[in-house]
């Protein structure tokens, strides 16, 4: 569990910690360690022991953070008939892999050409920002006018960034 940047929670944390004086009052405190780290550290009574585990926790945090890379998750929801074309398109744009799920939904168009082939598909791929732009541009240009397609992006942190070209 990572510690969210929220006024209330970090406020709570300061109240708890101030009497011991161990962590001090710091605005940036919440960024130093995760919430679960603090929970564990607060339980320790022995000063030396706590110092040891604080060091360990920081080291642990650094190792974890080294692996996380910022990428863009591109999600395309479309009628089933476009599945193969869209996969080809994202590959051409530089995506290195994707996940497909069958989904059911309704929207302004409603009707699908081929219930026989299946309902809608959701295609997700994690890519770098320039590939994401290319995908959004091409999908918008080719499909948004005539087909039932939704495309959106979100920023994600992923481990093993190289796998996605990050």
């Amino acid at each position: 569990m990572t510690f969210p940047i929220g006024q209330t929670l970090s406020g709570e944390l300061e109240k708890i910690q101030t009497p011991s004086g161990q962590f001090g009052i710091s605005e940036t405190l919440s960024h130093k360690l995760t919430w679960s780290h603090y929970v564990e550290l607060l339980k320790i009574d022995e000063d030396l022991e706590r110092q040891f585990y604080i060091k360990q926790s920081e080291q642990h945090r650094d190792e974890n953070h080294m692996e996380m890379k910022r990428g863009v998750l591109v999600t395309i929801i479309s009628e089933r008939i476009l599945r193969d074309d869209l996969i080809e398109l994202i590959r051409e744009c530089g995506s290195k892999g994707h996940t497909i799920t069958s989904v059911v939904g309704d929207g302004s168009r409603g009707i699908r050409a081929s219930d026989f082939e299946g309902r809608n598909v959701k295609i997700e791929t994690i890519v770098n920002a320039s590939v994401a732009d290319a995908i959004v541009d091409r999908v918008s240009g080719q499909y948004l006018e005539d087909y039932a397609v939704i495309i959106y992006t979100s920023k994600v942190d992923v481990v093993r960034g190289a796998k996605y070209g990050l």
Binding site: E79, I81, I111, R112, A113, S114, F116, E117, D146, Y147
Partner: peptide, 13 residues
């Protein structure tokens, strides 16, 4: 339907 959807995207399903 599948063929028409691809060849004539403007035709209404």
């Amino acid at each position: 339907p599948a063929a028409v959807r691809i060849a004539l995207p403007k035709a209404s399903p």
